[in-house]
Amino acid sequence: MSSTGEKHSPLEQFEIVPYIHIDSKGIDISFTNSSLAMTITVAVITLFLTFSVNTRSIVPSRLQLLSELSYNFIVQLLKDTVGAEGRKYFPFVFTIFMFVLIGNMVGMVPYSFTFTSHIIVTFALAAIVFIGVTVLGFVKHGLRFFSFFVIPGLPWYMLPLLIPIEVISYLSRPISLSVRLFANMLAGHTLLKVFAGFVVSLGLAGFLPLAFIVALTGLEILIAFLQAYVFAILTCLYINDALHLH
């Protein structure tokens, strides 16, 4: 059916399909393909992290080593950016990192769904980080947290100009954090889909876009890791700001 190629938009892969309709007091909380991807992600993470360390051996197996490496990766990240006090927030940062990382990776499986390519999901994640970090700052420093917007050592007459800039930059954090992840995933997957369409429409010459897709898939896996890393490291930096102000 050649007509389907025109109907199929590269954005069709992002469409949400409800599998189970659930209505709670008029609010639609249907179980969709997005929910399924999240569930699969959580299942993969929990099963992997639980069963890989089942033997708790001193000399680790390969899977156990993988869990330990990811654990130590985030521990080191927190230690480098926040310091020793960051240890308390380790479970949260680790969860964010694993959730985004495995979510991106699950999205790389053909015919699956990438929930990190939805702005509402990434924005919600960024909002959790933003609200959590702001609350942390107020709990830690009280009203002195507002001094975060005052850059020390600046002449007083510059303050009316710079305080609004600082406030805007602070408030734009969740937007930049969420849009970065969302846009990366959206662009990568759209590009893959566009070139996949070329493979079909070019016929025999289709091997060229196919080769490109293969290379792009490798790049996408790299980006999937990189974006999870960026999300985690920015979370660490925000926590550091909230704990130490400047």
Partner: peptide, 17 residues
């Protein structure tokens, strides 16, 4: 599906956390 996505995100993410 915003509400549905947010709901399931909160459920899965809190469970994972």
């Amino acid at each position: 599906f915003f509400v549905s996505q947010l709901f399931w995100l909160v459920v899965t993410f809190s469970f994972l956390l």
